Measured scan of single mutants.
Amino acid sequence: NQASVVANQLIPINVALTLVMMRSEVVTPVGIPAEDIPRLVSMQVNRAVPLGTTLMPDMVKGYA
């Protein structure tokens, strides 16, 4: 099963993503693939993302 990107903490809106904010985990439904974590660094989410939430492509500005 493919690992997805999961919030490692509350990720506020309009804050640049850092490695420490994200972890990889096998979850259902599948979200952004874990291998895209380096690409996500410095991008921003378009809504607050609670701890443990799977990041979906539509949550990250400029990802999709």
Rank of each mutant, 00 (worst) to 15 (best):
V49E: 00
P38C: 09
P29I: 06
L55F: 13
Q44E: 15
S42P: 00
I13C: 12
P50F: 06
G31C: 03
A3S: 14
R23F: 03
S24R: 07
G31D: 01
G31W: 02
L19Y: 10
R47Q: 14
M59T: 05
P29N: 05
L10T: 11
L17F: 02
T54H: 02
L51Q: 13
M59I: 05
M43L: 13
S42R: 09
I32A: 01
V49A: 04
E35K: 06
I32T: 03
V6M: 04
P12R: 07
A7D: 01
G62C: 15
T18F: 03
M56P: 01
L51M: 15
S24A: 14
L19G: 07
P50Q: 09
N14E: 09
T54R: 03
A34F: 05
A48K: 10
M56D: 04
R39P: 02
L55Q: 00
Q9C: 06
M56H: 08
M43P: 00
P29Q: 04
A7F: 02
L55H: 02
P57G: 07
V60R: 00
T53D: 11
A16Q: 14
L55E: 01
V26D: 15
G62K: 08
T53A: 12
I13W: 08
T28N: 12
R47Y: 10
L55D: 01
T18I: 07
A16W: 09
A64G: 14
V27G: 03
L19W: 09
V20Y: 14
D36V: 08
D58E: 12
I32N: 01
K61N: 13
N8V: 08
V49K: 02
L51C: 13
T54K: 03
L19D: 09
G52L: 03
V45F: 02
V49P: 01
I37C: 04
A3G: 09
M43I: 04
P29T: 05
D36Q: 12
I37L: 10
T18W: 03
T28C: 13
A34L: 03
P12A: 13
N46H: 11
V20G: 14
M21W: 03
L51Y: 13
Q2A: 09
M43V: 04
S42F: 09
L10K: 12
L19V: 12
I11V: 07
L17A: 00
D36Y: 11
V60G: 00
V6I: 15
I13V: 09
N14C: 09
G31P: 00
V15M: 14
M59S: 05
M59D: 14
L19Q: 13
T53L: 09
V60S: 02
R23Y: 07
P38I: 10
Q9I: 09
V5S: 03
G62Y: 08
P33Q: 05
D58Q: 14
V5F: 02
M21V: 03
L51G: 09
T18H: 06
P33I: 11
E35Y: 10
S4M: 03
K61Q: 11
N46I: 13
A3Q: 13
P12H: 08
A48V: 10
R23W: 03
Q44K: 11
M59C: 05
I13K: 12
P50V: 06
A64V: 15
V30M: 14
A7Y: 02
L40S: 00
N46V: 14
A64Y: 05
V49H: 01
A34C: 09
V41Q: 06
E25L: 05
R39A: 10
A7K: 02
G31I: 02
R47F: 08
L40A: 00
E25D: 14
I11A: 01
A16L: 09
S4D: 01
D58N: 11
A3N: 06
P33N: 09
E35N: 11
T18D: 08
R23S: 10
Q9R: 11
D36A: 08
K61L: 10
V27H: 03
V20R: 12
M43T: 05
A34K: 06
V20M: 14
R23E: 04
L10I: 13
A64W: 04
V26T: 12
V45Q: 00
A16N: 13
M21E: 02
P38T: 13
I37D: 01
V45C: 06
R39G: 11
M43N: 05
L40W: 02
G31E: 00
P33Y: 09
G52W: 04
I37E: 01
P12N: 14
P50H: 06
V15D: 08
L10D: 15
P29D: 07
G31L: 02
A16Y: 10
A64H: 14
M43R: 11
L51H: 11
V41A: 05
P33E: 04
T28I: 09
V5M: 01
Q2H: 12
V45N: 01
A16K: 11
I37S: 04
R23G: 07
V6L: 14
T28P: 01
V27E: 02
A7P: 01
P57T: 06
N1L: 15
P57E: 07
N8I: 05
N1H: 13
L10P: 12
E25G: 10
S42V: 03
P57N: 05
M21D: 04
M56K: 09
V27C: 05
A48Y: 08
M22S: 00
Q9Y: 08
L19H: 08
L17D: 02
V5Q: 02
T28H: 09
A7W: 03
M22A: 01
V5K: 01
V60P: 01
Y63G: 04
N1A: 14
V26M: 08
I37V: 06
V60F: 05
